[in-house]
Design a protein around this nucleic acid. Sequence first.
RNA 1: GCGAGCGUGGCGAAACUGGUAGACGCAAGGGACUUAAAAUCCCUCGACUUCGGUCAUGCGGGUUCGACCCCCGCCGCUCGCACCA
Length: 850
Amino acid sequence: MARYEPKTAEPRQQARWAAAEAFRTPEGETGRPKYYVLEMFPYPSGNIHMGHARNYVMGDVVARSKRAQGFDVLHPMGWDAFGLPAENAAIERGIHPGDWTWSNIAAMRDQLKLLGLSLDWSREFATCDPAYYGQQQAWFLELFRRGLVYRKDSIVNWDPVDNTVLANEQVVDGRGWRSGAIVEKRKLNQWFLRITDYADDLIEGLKELEGRWPDKVRLMQENWIGRSKGLQMTWRWSGAAPEAAPDGLEIYTTRPDTLFGASFMGIAPDHPIARALAERDPAAAAFIAECRKGGSTQAEIEQAEKVGYDTGLKVVHPFDGREVSVWIANFILSEYGTGAIFGCPAHDQRDLDFARKYGLPVIPVVRPDGAGDDFGVADEAYTGPGLIFGSDFLDGMEIEAAKAEAIRRIEAAGQGLGATIYRLRDWGVSRQRYWGCPIPIVHCPSCGPVPAADLPVELPKDVTFDTPGNPLDRHPTWKHVKCPSCHEDATRETDTLDTFVDSSWYFARFADPTAAEPISKAAADKWLPVDQYIGGVEHAVLHLLYARFVSRALSDAGLMNVREPFAGLFTQGMVVHETYRRADGGWVEPTDVELSNDGGKRSARQLSTSETLTIGDIEKMSKSKKNVVAPQEIVETYGVDAGRLFVLSDSPPERDVQWTPGGVEGASRFVQRVWAEVDGFDPGVAGDEQANASLVRETHKAIKAVSEGITGFRFNSAIAKLYAFVATVRDHAKAGGEAKHRALSALLRLVAPFTPHLAEEGWTRLGEAGMILDAPWPVYDPALAADDEVTLPIQVNGKRRGEIRVARGLEPAEVEAIVMADAEVQARLEGQTVRKIVVVKDRIVNLVVG
RNA sequence: GCGAGCGUGGCGAAACUGGUAGACGCAAGGGACUUAAAAUCCCUCGACUUCGGUCAUGCGGGUUCGACCCCCGCCGCUCGCACCA
């Protein structure tokens, strides 16, 4: 009997699939239902790592099993190819970002092909290809015409060394992540997409994703959008009104029920009133400057003391006519609400801290059940439920009723309106970077910003990175154009789009990647939404929210018809690995480590130096910790199939999986066992009748368990059942003939999504015609899976004390009679009274005694 | 601080709607085969045990004939958000 040789078998099968163009997406009307499986496409860093591999193998299991179940499957792959690392490579190594990117893509494509994924490579594209980003510019302009794209001044993180805007994620402890320079807040004119127009729709849409998206992700999006209901109102000035706000001070609150507890007004240091004041009041200006210095890291915010500056301005309380003073306060955010609040120290901790510091009044107006009119607040604001008091017409009301009444009164007085506001802010998409999609806008001195005339607006290739800043900005010719409408001298926008824009619609482009318009409606109508999307949780908010927004915006613009792009979402866990460290603290990669195990006591030694190593924490595979195992190494040593099997076998797919050498070896043993069973099959042996009947039952049980495991995304359980099934087949040594043939045929088809090369080899060895790829999924027949007898555990007071074998389907009364007549049961119950017998049909017997 | 998730052998984990806790894999121990090793195969593998059993799913309660699963209260870990009015 020959060993299975993945090294020769795997390339052989991959060549066979390629020759047959087996993974080309079916075109035209086939009468079969469609299924779109997509994994989040990779950034072309140059290497496929284990995390990628696990992600794509999961998608491949879904794609292959859906195909076997009779679906027309779309399973494409592409490249999220714009971004900073390419520019950094250009700066460090003098390579053009495009050359660097395209050569990485070529390398990664080769690595990916080793994995034997059922991908339709004919639909491949990269976002840095003008054929793609030109279409992106087209829809961007359509949104511009529809008013969903606009420019405004906004405060951004500015890196004074690199001369660029940094995203919040790129600011580490107040410094630029690459330059190390202290980041400044700077006001810049930036392009925005009006995602806030869709805030409500994006929240509402989450409801229909229930059950198909992880609750966690839906919740994160909901929190990110942050809808809150309250009152937006204006407080009239007492005395002279400041020029910046002649009508009054506009604030937002979610607690209008506590209006009578107001003791001060707070405005953000960036509030127009504050800025106006700073111009003639040096003390105010100094205070505001001090506020701006404060860092934005978590620790700094937590420790930052609440400080304020009394503007001397006063407003009038809308209900009781009191004068309330207006303060500039550092804890008020200019971007949220109106950038101004009314302070109610008794019922808000921040307001209380502030009031105590400046000796402002603390007026309780909500008291908990049972408290009297003397209810007071010391160091802790009261935010719980209760009844309103000390509040005139609101007295005695519950909080919710009081909110409604306060809003009603303010609205009646014409001083405000009930309002819903969001935490979500418009999406700033301007980047002062070269390697991105050019924003297709021309700035004309007389016409203003107008859409560029000829698309695509291509990135110029002749750029240098020897000086900091955006090469587009200093390009000698590229930025100078004629205005498309008045034909006078004008300049191009030199900012490029955030790369999240590129990934916010690629799934729709895959429906027809060569369409002359951004999205082929016919193709998108056929394939969208993505039925199963798979990727990491790190995109729970950003990418997944942007894609949902863009789908809605493009639908409203008539460019597509699917508002909710991903019908199903699965977020997979990471691949983690042990770390190894030398005494000097240096990390050592697994290939240079020899592990030994002495009676359960593990130790590690570095091969190259013979030094004893410390076995460290199990962490995400990363270059810095050197705990990386490359997929290609595994393919060479164990074959792709063993690797594919192992990344899915040891942990549930949503959880992290720990890569271990022993684990892959186990998977590799399984591959050999499957082959041994198939290879050793002799169709000439009829087999024992009883063994055959038993094998048929076991086969159908396995079909059920594995099928359910795959559809339920419990790949680890499905694989465990497959392991057990192979052992079962082997244990049925006396089985043969048709029963055994069917068992092996089912085994191969069940294992095919995980280990497709092995399955194809086995299929041929079994004597089946064609490719297993085209074989239908085995069908579970409950009648064939049923045993004649069942084992019923017998419990006494809920503890298992014995068991009994009875015919399947026996009625409880019959079971009861058999159990009570049983000698062992009799012996055990001696001297005790049976008070009750619970029999669950074909399941369990419980005797209640005592 | 707010929100969510998780906690089961030496380890990764299973147990679907409450019904035989620990499937499957790893590690470990023993054995067969071999001149030897590798590979392969077989057996053992939660704890305690007077070998009859008894106790075991983070801790303490509760509901139930019956709880890893449901409820209440703790403890611990992980993740997300974070001065959001």
